[in-house]
Amino acid sequence: MEHNNTVTTMADYAAKGESPEILFWVGCAGSFDDRAKKITKAIVRILNHVGIKFAVLGTEETCSGDPAKRAGNEFLFQMQAMNAITVLNGYGIKKIVTGCPHCFNTLKNEYPSIGGNYEVIHHTQLIQQLIDSGKLTVKGGAFKGKLITFHDPCYLGRANDVYEAPREIIEKLEVELSEMKRSRAKGFCCGAGGAQMFKDAEKGNKEVNIERSEEALALKPDVIATGCPFCMTMMTDGVKHFNKEQQTKVMDVAELIAQANDL
């Protein structure tokens, strides 16, 4: 099946005098990181498959400011945020879906106090809505009967209480969803949040991602699913550390859906 990666930018829509149903906020990882770009494309294929009229900002998108804010640089965060809000408000954006829980959290929770008010959802929530409304039918496909565990991204789970959307989607794949002991509200961080992604870890006796990957691998899953490009990097590195990349794949929930449905 031909992959439908077609995207239209906001600028293109504006030039035609049209406005899309929803803006897909790709995020920096989703735009530049080779692994995360695959997640971006999976999301695009799902959106194209259901025929939602969506746009991306393309080169007008910038960092949401999340890493600057978590690192304590409120100046830089607010500069980024205000510039982004100018662009978003300029296009009259109402609804946004993000491919990253960090962008999701920042846009949803931290933009309103500086003038950016949008309905923001994470891509797992959108997929769940599409399934619930019957627009997207999901079958197990290649994943049928496989053992999958879900690693809760902190900024999706604890930060915003989204625990069920990704799980409900995974269960639609006719798989065995096996939970780690530390899951949902007790989920254990991958180690990348709070701008840790961009710095060396402090001295300790173990890397956080190794601790978490070890916990996930103990279930001997076929797939460790997640919903965050940073968790993706950390868990992939962790699985490699234990030389288990042949047995266990790390995949985004969007990729599971796209792949199972040959999108």
Binding site: C28, S31, V56, T59, E61, C63, F198
Partner: peptide, 17 residues
């Protein structure tokens, strides 16, 4: 406009890959 050293002009390159 990104935490890594990528050119903002390349932000949509993924769509062409």
């Amino acid at each position: 406009g990104a935490p890594w050293q990528f050119s903002p002009a390349d932000r949509l390159n993924w769509a062409k890959e």
